[in-house]
Nucleic acid binder design. Structure first.
Length: 516
RNA sequence: GGCCCGUUCGUCUAGGGGUUAGGACACCAGAUUUUCAUUCUGGUAACAGGGGUUCGAUUCCCCUACGGGCUACCA
């Protein structure tokens, strides 16, 4: 065990898009694997044919790719343990073999009860005031299974192809102890565990059997999953034991859940956009209803920011560092620093993270991201699409933004002269004095050639002295005359970028318009 | 209902028997930039409650409360 190569898998069910909790599970698994120089495997658990959703598998792969989580082995890349899709593994008879072995060893049994019979059993137990009606060591005695039927009867039913399931034969009362990396020892009495179905009547394994068989065959060393699996973990321990695989079973880590920010319950796929922030990494269109759920990618989040947000939900490095690259995380990550309690997603902090990464990026990188968006607003071939202009624009505007996709609404006036002017600022600052100042300023600007930020600022101050106007009272007004709005990036830097001609033109236009 | 897991500022969290209980986001204030914003500085704000154990508990134990999970031939 000690020298085994570390291998972790992310094993989602393709029932739709993965929500951010699932991606976090994948991320933690990936980080742990990489920290120990091991492998990250993607396995698709498509054992429920009724819930299969087309496109879900592709979505999962694309999501992981976007996050920068590299799949070493799995459905998309293959590997020594292929196939990695459980439906295909079932076709190979892999699970059936294990289930039959358990029956043979008297750790499992055939059950022929129909759905109606199961319903009746539950009703009967409820009527008898049984607190937790379940198919277990007691109730199984009154059901139709290979424990109550004679050997001949069982053989007959089997030969007649009567549908059956294989159930785990859970002992009546036995303490089951298991160790969780995050929670320590957990003890449950087997009387609380029901006789779980291992093999369904359609021949497919249930999650309980399938994940164990595959984790063993794929040599998984650490099984990471959400806390919602904790109650069924004792059953899983029993299966390992009955299969004689306890010594090679993976260590389990049950992660705290991601909670709905509005109070109660775990975050769910169905939350969609209801909460005002995306629940999914990427946009997803439901193939059945056509309904669109938005994703972080399309909302304008950088993948670096996205994983940074996720990793800090339930984990921390124990230092004050908050910004990490994937590589750094792969160095720092440990399960010891994963907390036990659920975490709510904070949309405000998420924006802050994206802003941090926005500021980290070079102006050239950002310009490349913004250019396609800009092209939607400008005619092809516009001189304003020129690289230097756009790059400088990005340099100025990024200080004001959280997302690249805010750039246009924040700074469209860099590309289109304003049509109207902020009425509040005008009301407050426009008067004879300031008008005089602007006229003198216009003349002064006309007279200079090097229209740099430093120079225009100088002239601006000089004009203040010249006219006896306190420049603080006209600075924002000048901004409004040039851009229409009261806020924006550094004023003189902005003027430099606009250039002398454009600046003067806007100033003159504004002066005539505002007068009326 | 039963079983399991949890509980530090509004949120994410650090800490851990003796601390002014630390940081981050958000919020507020001041400073600076003779503009808005940025930035900087400061501030408001938390150990769920009750019992123990102890010289001393937020920290360890128990109970209660609250929150969450599970209770399918779903994962």
């Amino acid at each position: 065990m000690e020298n085994k190569r570390v291998r972790l898998r992310y094993a989602p069910s393709p029932t739709g898009p993965q929500h951010i909790g699932g991606i976090r599970t994948a991320l933690f698994s990936y980080l742990f694997a990489k920290k120990h120089g091991g492998d990250f495997i993607l396995r698709i658990e498509d054992t429920d044919q009724t819930r299969f959703v087309k496109g879900a598998e592709e979505y999962i792969i694309e999501s992981l790719n976007w996050c920068g989580i590299k799949i070493d082995e799995g459905v998309s890349v293959g590997g020594p343990h292929a196939p990695y899709r459980q439906s295909e593994r079932k076709a190979l008879g892999i699970y059936q073999k294990y289930a039959e072995q358990l029956v043979k060893d008297d750790f499992a049994y055939y059950a022929f009860d129909t759905g109606e019979e199961l319903d009746e059993m539950r009703k009967r137990l409820e009527a008898a005031k049984v607190v937790a009606p379940q198919y277990n060591s007691v109730s199984r005695q009154n059901m139709k299974n290979s424990l109550t039927l004679s050997e001949d009867e069982v053989k007959k039913l089997l030969s007649e192809n009567v549908p059956y399931v294989i159930r785990l034969k859970v002992p009546r009362s036995e303490e089951i102890r298991f160790h969780d990396i995050i929670r320590g020892w957990v003890v449950v009495n087997s009387s609380q565990v029901d006789d779980k179905v291992l093999l369904k009547s359609d021949g497919m394994p249930t999650y309980h059997l399938a994940h164990i068989v595959d984790d063993i065959l794929m040599e998984i060393t650490h099984a990471v999953r959400g806390e919602e699996w904790l109650p069924s973990a004792p059953a899983h321990m029993l299966i390992y034991r009955y299969l004689g695989l306890e010594s090679t079973m993976p260590q389990y880590a049950h992660l705290p859940l991601l909670l709905k920010p509005d109070g109660n319950g775990k975050l769910s796929k169905r939350d969609g956009d209801r909460l005002g922030f995306p629940t999914f990494p990427l946009d997803w269109t439901d193939p059945a209803t056509g309904e669109l759920s938005s994703g972080y990618r399309e909302k304008g989040y950088f993948p670096e920011a996205f994983i940074n947000i996720l990793v800090l939900l339930g984990w921390n490095p124990g230092t004050v560092q908050e910004l990490f690259t994937l590589e750094e995380l792969a160095q720092l990550f440990t399960f010891e620093r994963v907390s036990k309690s659920g975490a709510k997603f904070d949309p405000e902090k998420a924006k802050w993270f994206n802003q941090q990464y926005l500021r980290k990026k070079s102006d050239e990188e950002i310009a490349a991201l913004f250019l396609p968006l800009l092209k939607e607003h400008l005619p092809a071939g516009s001189p304003l699409l020129e690289s230097k202009y756009v790059t400088t624009f990005c340099k100025l505007i990024k200080e004001k933004a959280h997302f690249v996709n805010e750039f246009w609404s924040l700074g469209s006036y860099f590309f289109i002269a304003p049509e109207s002017y902020d009425a509040d600022v005008l009301k407050k600052r426009w008067n004879e004095q300031s008008e005089k100042f602007m006229l003198v300023l216009t003349d002064n600007y006309k007279a200079i050639d090097n229209f740099t930020a430093a120079e225009t600022e100088n002239i601006f101050k000089q004009t203040g002295e010249q006219t006896g106007v306190a420049v603080g009272t006209v600075m924002q007004l000048l901004r409004v005359l040039l851009t229409g709005v009261g806020g924006g990036p550094m004023l003189f830097e902005m003027m430099e970028l606009l250039g002398k001609k454009e600046t003067l033109q806007r100033l003159e236009t504004a002066l005539t318009k505002v007068k009326n």
